[in-house]
């Protein structure tokens, strides 16, 4: 059928539109010229070597990685107890707690960054690692909460009760009954949290300095002034890391969400 084929071609065009900038960045990072061009002229990994000897990039990379790691760990420590309370108990303020913890998901990060800068300047918490960290914890906690919460189902509560009745302590029950149940959500939620922190610009940009900077903010400031192939090399490296992360998540939880067709 004609319509069917034109739809197929349209879909492939839109998919190429989604892939194009990523391919262009990876291609441009391999050019032998000192300016950015696509298709690349020649083929070299020199720009990656330049990146690996650039201390600004390396320290920003370390900051971003530490920040994402700490933010994720703290987010898990905040989100898992909150998820347990929300899923297992009826208490006043339960709805308030869940919207308090989830709403940073939909608020503009720029507004949150501005708010934390203003509040931080009142309490002396600006432009350092901790100032960055608290903001990142706020934006990544919802990801962990959202993936863990659905796994704390009611029938699993029965298992926990049984474990308690059989004399297991609260902690032992958590370790041997609850944790295995929420592990997939914890894993994918943590990965989402880590990545969300790692790629953030809007929130971090208020509290970064030339001494303490994250990779995306550093790229942002570089791009505003000049464009050279090292920026493409760093960007390409983050794209490759993202591909790996998406494939890992796909293998762990499965991203094939469109396959459950109703009525089959």
């Amino acid at each position: 059928m004609m319509a069917s084929w034109s739809l197929r071609i349209l879909a492939l065009l839109i998919l190429s539109y989604l892939a194009l900038p990523l391919i262009v960045i990876i291609g441009a990072s391999l050019t032998t010229t000192s300016f950015l061009t696509f298709p690349p002229r020649g083929l070299t990994f020199d720009w990656y070597e330049v990146v690996l000897t650039n201390s600004a990039y390396l320290s920003a990379f370390a900051t971003s990685a530490w920040l994402a790691l700490w933010a994720t760990v703290i987010a898990v420590l905040l989100a898992v107890p909150a998820a347990l309370a929300i899923a297992r108990y009826e208490f006043p303020g339960r709805a308030f707690l869940s919207s308090l913890l989830l709403s940073s998901l939909v608020l503009p990060h720029l507004v949150l960054g501005a708010a934390l800068l203003q509040f931080g300047s009142m309490i002396g918490l600006t432009r350092n690692f901790t100032a960055l960290l608290v903001g990142h914890v706020v934006i990544v906690t919802p990801y962990v909460l959202r993936t863990v919460l659905p796994l704390l189902s009611a029938d699993q509560k029965t298992l926990e009760d049984a474990s308690c009745d059989l004399g297991a302590s609260g902690l032992a029950t958590f370790r041997y009954v609850t944790l295995p149940q929420i592990r997939p959500g914890l894993l994918s939620g943590s990965l989402f949290a880590f990545i969300t922190s790692f790629i953030n610009v809007e929130l971090s940009i208020f509290n970064t300095t030339s001494e303490i900077n994250t990779i995306p903010v550093l790229l942002f400031t570089y791009v505003e002034y000049s464009i050279d192939p090292t920026i493409a090399a760093v960007s390409a490296a983050t794209i490759v890391a993202a591909v790996i992360a998406v494939v890992v998540i796909d293998l762990v939880v499965g991203l094939d969400f469109f396959s459950d067709r109703g009525g089959r």
Partner: peptide, 17 residues
């Protein structure tokens, strides 16, 4: 995949294009 890469990286791709 684009959701897992920074806005800066994705916008940078369009700056080149």
């Amino acid at each position: 995949l684009p959701l897992f890469t920074s806005n800066i990286v994705r916008s940078f791709g369009w700056m080149i294009l």
